[in-house]
């Protein structure tokens, strides 16, 4: 299993990474901005993507659009964002995100949701 985590907060990435590897979900790869995320997505096949919304270069929503419309992949995507406005959540699901978690989030809950999306 290969999971991509995109967030500009390194502390958060390191925690999510720690949690997911403890749960034995496989390899966790990080991207600190939208540009790096796009590059990694083009070079690799991921089984799951976890992304923040507001990041340098490309937003998480742009990443979703890119995966669905340009790469035409069905990789499950979880949006993990501090911004929980109804409009944003609706837009995220509308353009193809599979799940939306608002920060502050519980790492245990994240793990469960990841597990469900990976069909483990």
């Amino acid at each position: 299993m290969k999971i991509l985590v995109c967030d500009d907060d390194e502390a958060l990435i390191s925690m999510v990474r720690f949690k997911l590897s403890r749960e034995n979900f496989g390899e966790v790869i990080k991207a600190v901005d939208g540009r790096e995320a796009k590059r990694l997505l083009e070079e690799n096949d991921f089984d799951l993507i976890i992304s923040d919304i507001h990041m340098p270069f490309h937003s998480g929503l742009e990443i979703v659009t890119h995966v669905r419309q340009v790469l035409k992949k069905k990789t499950p995507i979880i949006i993990l964002s501090a911004e929980g406005l109804e409009e944003t959540v609706l837009q995220a699901f509308d353009i193809g995100a599979n799940d939306f978690i608002t920060k502050p989030f519980s790492p245990a809950e994240l793990a469960i949701r990841v597990k469900r999306l990976l069909n483990l």
Binding site: D9, A11, M15, P104, F105, S106, P107, A108
Partner: peptide, 15 residues
């Protein structure tokens, strides 16, 4: 600062 910044993004028992 570290406690505060981590606390901002996580909730539940971890927090």
């Amino acid at each position: 600062n570290q406690l505060v910044s981590v606390k901002k993004s996580i909730s539940g028992s971890s927090s």
